[in-house]
Design a protein around this nucleic acid. Structure first.
Length: 265
DNA sequence: CCGGTCAACTTGGAAC
DNA sequence: GTTCCAAGTTGACCGG
């Protein structure tokens, strides 16, 4: 942009960003080790998103009844998990205890005769109650430790793996939503700054014209010119034309639209 | 039929 | 090596 022109006049524009730190998870789980990446990207604009900030003040009673220390369903790691269709998932479900398989059938409304082919992959739809409880749990912990996962799974009549997947997907959706919000916010900032830039360019042109019309003031050091950020006018322009168009400033006056709520967002 | 949603999956990386 | 998670993908399901 043509900020060199601006410098030639002695006017200085400064742009800045407010650095806001996204609230971080206080979960007891491992997730707390990572910073919330929602705002990391480029601009550190802070937003009060619905996502992670409002989560977890207290512990849900997910732990109730999790006295069992053995993860009955503990699959191998996702890496070593049976790879999907060529008998994978269905076979894995078969390995569950008969009680849990029964539970699974009821909760996921998946028929026992799903194995109608090696590629069978039935869509589980969570019930309203299951979704509500998962949501409630998510509000308090966006991540689960194994015990919480286990307890929640029992409570919901789901497999721990299903609970785990639901939380993973839920986190992803939250992040996506937050990204969209951030995007909208930045778009608005961009529009505001564009307008601001346009206005300043216009004022610059006016000042240049004024400078040519009044060579007397050319003797003044350019760096002493200043502009009032609140009224967004330079003395002598418009209705203040009768007064001295310039004022003396000890320092160049930086105007930061991000820290001035009246200008930016 | 098509696009959106979402459970389930794979892959890769980090932490231990 | 194991476990967990994020990111990206797949495929079933559903409503318009």
């Amino acid at each position: 942009m043509g900020f060199d022109d601006v410098c030639n006049t002695g006017l200085v524009l400064g742009l800045g960003l407010t650095a806001a730190t996204a609230a971080q998870e206080s979960s007891t789980s491992k997730a707390a080790k990572k910073p919330c990446s929602n705002f990391e990207p480029s601009l550190t604009l802070g937003l009060s998103g619905e996502s992670y900030q409002q989560i977890f003040p207290k512990k849900i009673d997910v732990n109730k009844g999790c006295d069992e220390s053995v993860d009955l369903y503990r699959q191998a790691s996702p890496h070593s998990a049976v790879s999907s269709f060529s008998s994978g998932r269905i076979k894995r479900e078969r390995d569950l205890s008969s009680e849990e398989v029964e539970v699974e059938r009821v909760s996921s409304r998946v028929s026992d005769e799903d194995e109608d082919g090696p590629n069978a992959r039935k869509k589980l739809r969570l019930t309203k109650e299951q979704s509500a409880l998962l949501e409630e749990s998510f509000k308090q912990h966006s991540t689960l430790n194994p015990k919480q996962k286990q307890a929640l799974a029992r409570q919901l009549n789901l497999r721990p793996r299903q609970v785990e997947v639901w939380f993973q997907n839920r986190r992803a959706r939250t992040k996506l939503k937050q990204t969209e919000v951030d995007c909208e916010f930045l778009k608005k900032c961009c529009e505001t700054l564009t307008d601001e830039n346009r206005r300043l360019q216009k004022e610059l042109q006016e000042l240049k014209a004024l400078k040519l019309a009044q060579p007397l003031y050319m003797h003044m050091p350019a760096a002493t010119l200043t502009m009032c950020p609140s009224c967004e006018r330079i003395g002598g322009v418009g209705e203040n034309a009768s007064k001295s168009p310039f004022s003396m400033a000890p320092k160049p006056h930086f105007y930061n639209p991000f820290t001035n709520p009246s200008a930016a967002c």
